[in-house]
Amino acid sequence: MVQLFRKVRQNLLSENKFTKYLVYALGEIILVVIGILIALAINNGNQNRINKENEQTYLAGLQEEFQTSKSKLTELIAVNQSNYAGAKKILEHTNTKNNPISEATFSKLLYNTFSKDIAFNPNNSLLQEMVNSGNLKNLSNTQLRKQLTNWISTMEDISRQEEELSIQREKVLDMFRTNENSLKTIFKQAGIYDNIGLPTNETDVSNLGLLNSTEFENNVLMFILTCYATEKAHYNPLMQDLDAILNLIKKEIN
């Protein structure tokens, strides 16, 4: 084909048909440009198809991650609610002579309320990989990209709040690491001590005196307030963000 075009050009020049030569050369250039544009269009079409396929793969992975994270958060909210509900029951018996509570009941309340630490551990491995590799920009939905970027910074805020909650929990537990009170009594009365095969003796230290301690009452109160703030100001808005992200992902998945 190239040789044919060259032969035509040579014939036109040899016959002194310069005007026709220019028209022919221009036509040839136009054909080349059209060929290049067609090739680019095909290439762009293929690249767009590949990008769409990659985006769908990322979306499916993100959907699975955030659904797992939602299940974890739902369970964590329930644990947090149980913790501060138990702490409120303990608070009902502080500094009062009415409705006396038994050592066994007090121990079970203490164990059920303060034995579970709170820490949200979302599944963010794919999201982190996308951020680190720059592939987050491959998501075409601008609002989704914004929500995912905000999610990462929100996790830092959640961690700080959970750290504060852990500090308040430890302040209560520290009151049982003294000569006046006993963790062993809690474990024995709550049925935990025998289950893990620890040695027993007949001497038990009562923890009921803590119910008349203002320091204990203050620590439990701060724990309740921090639990409440963790749920209302952090976990509930986080759940709303999770639902928003999952809804955006669902709309984008073909």
Rank of each mutant, 00 (worst) to 15 (best):
E215R: 10
N218G: 04
L211P: 05
N179E: 12
S182G: 07
N195K: 14
T230P: 01
T185Q: 13
S133Y: 03
M175H: 02
Y193C: 00
Q189T: 01
D117T: 11
E162F: 05
A119G: 03
T203G: 03
S140H: 10
H234R: 04
T185D: 08
L211N: 06
L126W: 08
L198R: 03
P199D: 12
G209C: 05
T226Q: 15
N135I: 01
M175W: 03
L148S: 10
D194R: 08
I196D: 00
P122W: 12
N219C: 02
Q128H: 07
W151V: 02
T178S: 14
S213W: 04
G134C: 09
S182H: 06
P237G: 07
E163Y: 10
E129N: 13
N195E: 13
S206W: 04
K116I: 03
I196S: 00
L211S: 09
N123C: 01
N179G: 09
Q168K: 15
N150Y: 09
N123R: 07
E217G: 04
E170S: 13
K232L: 11
E215H: 06
T226I: 06
V172Q: 05
S140R: 11
N141T: 09
Q161F: 03
T149S: 15
T203Y: 10
N150H: 11
N207Q: 07
L139N: 06
I118L: 07
N195P: 00
G209R: 06
D117K: 10
E129K: 13
E164Q: 14
D174G: 00
L198E: 06
N179Q: 11
T200M: 02
E156S: 12
F120V: 05
E217T: 13
T154D: 09
T154H: 06
